[in-house]
Design a protein around this nucleic acid. Structure first.
Length: 429
RNA sequence: GUGGUUGUAGUUCAGUUGGUUAGAACGCCUGAUUGUGGUUCAGGAGGUCGCCGGUUCGAGUCCGGUCUUCCACCCCA
């Protein structure tokens, strides 16, 4: 929890340095908000909530044959699958109160009905930052800088920000004439790092790409060299594609603003709502999948009746970042939250005095724990020991009489009788 | 959704071809020390062997079902 808080606080801090404020949306959304936004596979992974009351009401005999019919009748609500879609809904519904362009960050849990495994959970946090209501490429630039700031702060130095543009990919599908298979194409090339070129080509064959197209696409996917060199190459390929040229123009603009990213033509992303820039952050030689992903979506609010609103954002996978930090020992070691001092007392008669001293110390900004039960001193010291509390103040008969309280140093075992003021100066850090 | 895997004390795990009273380590409790922890020593408590059913004279052990854990695939953060 300490480490998670450190992670979240650091990220929040950087988000606000970039001018984002927090919002939250409910965990539960109506199914029509969630359905159809994440592709066919995504729809299956949405957790559905059974209707309250008599959920069998309205089911016809004919429905029983098809699961999807029953499903939609007995479950009208579900747990959110990501933060972007609920955000789009939020913006559409509150358009009268929101001034565009609007930016926000959102750190909340999302749920996926998947089998959990390493680096992958049914319930996990996402940290999203999004701009909405602006087409400016400055947003992409800011997001790249922000990502850079975050990973710099965490000292994850081998992180790479990969950038591509869906319009370029759309251009490719236009030039090689398979626009109708565009979504499948994205999912396939997204896997190149994982399963390799040969298997990818087998999948291309399955969606009926010609050998010639596959060869040419291979050349594109395998392009090496600088961002500029890749751009020059793809420019030639896409001369006849209007949408392709748009994508190229956007990347060009971005390259003028920053060089902190790697232009990667094999980056595609699975989610179907991205329409333009797409980002992903990966580690150089780590097969944990991406630790950050995002992109620009032009039509997401349109489904909720709010047209011509373009948004762009990125999401940090903090569970995965957590694992990497843990593995590499990158968490600061001064995170421990132990209290500065424990006040222990030898009889119930001294509880009043203990609480009085506790308050005095707290006013001096000292973290004080007062032992909550009238146990043996032995117990109280054990408690201090197990909770890593460095000092214990012992209050007994002698201490009350002399107004000099026993301060025991738990590290070296020494103890002295001191006045409250002396204790304060000893214990403050 | 597909294939595999796991489940025994608070925790991590042993447990032989099915055979008496299911063990260890750590943790917990008590005492040695009635005002002194962390170290040491002596003692103690703690288990419906995931759940349901079956085979057997007898099941932690074998069989079926179910739930759970973890892993791979699909997909994804």
């Amino acid at each position: 929890m300490l480490k998670r808080d450190y992670l979240l606080n650091t990220i929040k801090n950087i988000f606000s340095l970039y001018g984002f404020n927090a919002i939250e949306t409910p965990s539960i959304e109506n199914m029509e908000v969630l359905n159809g936004k994440y592709g066919d596979e995504g729809d299956k992974l949405i957790f559905r909530i059974l209707n309250s009351g008599n959920f069998t009401e309205g089911i016809e005999k004919t429905d029983i044959k098809t699961i999807s019919n029953i499903r939609t009748k007995i479950s009208k609500k579900g747990l959110r699958y990501d933060l972007t879609v609920p955000f789009a809904r939020f913006v559409s519904m509150n358009r009268d109160k929101i001034t565009l362009p609007f930016k926000r960050y959102q750190i909340q849990k999302v749920w996926r009905a998947d089998r959990p495994q390493r680096g992958r959970y049914r319930e996990f946090y996402q940290c999203d930052v999004d701009y909405i209501g602006t087409k400016s490429i400055i947003c992409e630039n800011e997001i790249i800088n922000l990502v850079f700031s975050v990973f710099n702060k965490f000292q994850i130095e081998d992180s790479i920000i990969k950038v591509n543009n869906r319009k370029i990919l759309a251009g490719i599908s236009e030039v090689f004439n398979f626009q109708n298979k565009f979504d499948e194409f994205c999912i396939i090339i997204d896997k190149i790092d994982k399963i390799g070129l040969e298997k990818i080509n087998q999948e291309f064959v399955k969606i009926n790409l010609s050998k010639d197209s596959i060869n040419q696409i291979n050349k594109i996917l395998l392009l090496k060299g600088s961002n500029q060199e890749k751009l020059d190459y793809i420019k030639k390929v896409l001369v006849k594609s209007k949408i392709g040229k748009e994508g190229i123009l956007e990347i060009e603009k971005l390259m003028k603003l920053t060089s902190k990213f790697e232009f990667d033509l094999s980056l595609a992303r699975g989610l179907s709502y991205y329409t333009s820039s797409i980002f992903e952050v990966v580690l150089k030689d780590k097969n944990l999948g991406s630790i950050c992903g995002g992109g620009r979506y032009d039509d997401l609010t349109e489904i909720f009746g709010y047209k011509n609103i373009s948004g762009v954002g990125i999401s940090f996978g903090i569970e995965r970042i957590y694992e990497i930090m843990e593995e590499r020992n990158l968490f600061p070691n001064n995170l421990d939250q132990s209290n500065d001092v424990l006040i222990s007392y030898l009889s119930e008669n001294y509880i009043g005095k203990s609480l009085e001293i506790a308050n005095t110390l707290r006013e001096k900004n000292i973290k004080v724990d007062v032992y909550s039960e009238n146990n043996k001193l032995k117990k109280q010291l054990q408690y201090a020991n197990k909770n890593n509390i460095p000092f214990v103040i012992i209050i007994g008969e002698e201490e009350i009489k002399s107004k000099l309280y026993t301060l025991k140093n738990m590290k070296d075992g020494t103890q002295k009788n001191l006045s409250i003021d002396e204790i304060i100066s000893k214990v403050s850090r």
